[in-house]
């Protein structure tokens, strides 16, 4: 609104103070909406943290169920994370650097677990790797029974979380200045050296941010795990599964584990934001091509 309009009657004939009240109402409304949104998001978290006295909360972290779940979660997530980085990084590099017919199809396959309901993912894993599943006969002939084992937890976590890593890693590799990789070739560097010495260091920030998001998703993984791996304390019961199984038996303990999960997730989110920031601020010296989504149609 310009200066002239605030003096004298407004064009529709209403006096000044009406317009002023209108503006004040809009401002109050905006503040109220902001407060409502923040309160809605924050209230459940506050409720979890204040559900029981602090000493009981800390005691809850130390119960057998909780420590077992912490160990299972740490072990399975560490292995899943290692597999994801080891296989996902070269895969993302190749996908980012190559153009071939059917690339969009590959990208869709990679993205699919992102939109698949976790329960369906668990079901899919069960009918693929389970005893009666697609690979079940082959695997049991080899003496391997994956379903309801700790390996199943790892598989479920990898399946559900690695698309988050792949998606981010492809974007990070695509943002690496192609001419640097060309120069590396002319300087005699083969594909492995180009990837490890040039592409990965230049994409570190993006890779780290993507890995953090994937890790957080893996820590929180529930649906696929409970269907494919079950919930056996000490073998397949991860933290989220422990929350679910304690829900009926001991709500205090369930809440304590819930608080633990929230602290871990918040820490990961924070780290990924830091990584994401350092990534955007320390890009290569040359103006990089405008960041584009790796999954946008080209």
């Amino acid at each position: 609104m310009n200066a002239a309009a605030t003096r004298g009657p407004s064009p529709d004939g209403a006096p000044d103070w009406v317009a002023a009240i209108g503006r004040a109402a809009v401002a109050v409304g905006l503040v109220a909406v902001t407060a409502i949104v923040l309160a809605f998001l924050l209230l459940p978290i506050v409720a979890l943290f204040t559900y029981q006295p602090v000493h009981e909360l800390i005691d809850g972290f130390g119960t057998k169920v909780a420590t077992d779940a912490i160990l299972v979660s740490l072990k399975t997530n560490a292995i899943a994370f290692g597999l994801m980085i080891a296989f996902g990084t070269p895969f993302a590099y190749v996908l980012a650097r190559s153009r071939f017919p059917g690339r969009d199809l590959v990208v869709t396959v990679v993205e699919l677990p992102l939109v698949m309901p976790p329960a369906v993912a668990g079901l899919a894993l069960l009918v693929a790797f389970g005893r009666l599943g697609l690979l079940g006969h082959t695997l049991s002939a080899l003496g391997i029974d994956l379903a309801f084992s700790q390996a199943a937890v790892v598989i479920a976590i990898v399946f559900v979380s690695s698309p988050f890593y792949l998606r981010g890693a492809v974007a990070a590799f695509e943002a690496v200045d192609e001419s640097l990789l060309d120069v590396a070739r002319t300087l005699g560097a083969g594909p492995v050296r180009r990837m490890l010495r040039v592409a990965v260091p230049l994409a570190t920030g993006g890779l780290g941010a993507a890995a953090a998001v994937a890790f957080a998703r893996g820590i929180g993984e529930f649906g696929a795990t409970i269907l494919f791996a079950g919930s056996f304390q000490g073998t397949t019961q991860t933290l989220p599964l422990a929350v679910y199984s304690l829900f009926d038996a001991n709500l205090d303990q369930a809440v304590a584990i819930g608080v633990l999960l929230i602290i871990v997730s918040a820490a990961i989110l924070f780290v990924s934001k830091l990584l994401g920031r350092s990534w955007t601020s320390s890009k290569s010296t040359s103006p990089s091509p405008a960041a584009r989504s790796p999954f946008a149609p080209r």
Partner: peptide, 8 residues
């Protein structure tokens, strides 16, 4: 290349 392609 155009911008010398030094590894930053």
């Amino acid at each position: 290349p155009q911008d010398y392609g030094l590894f930053p």
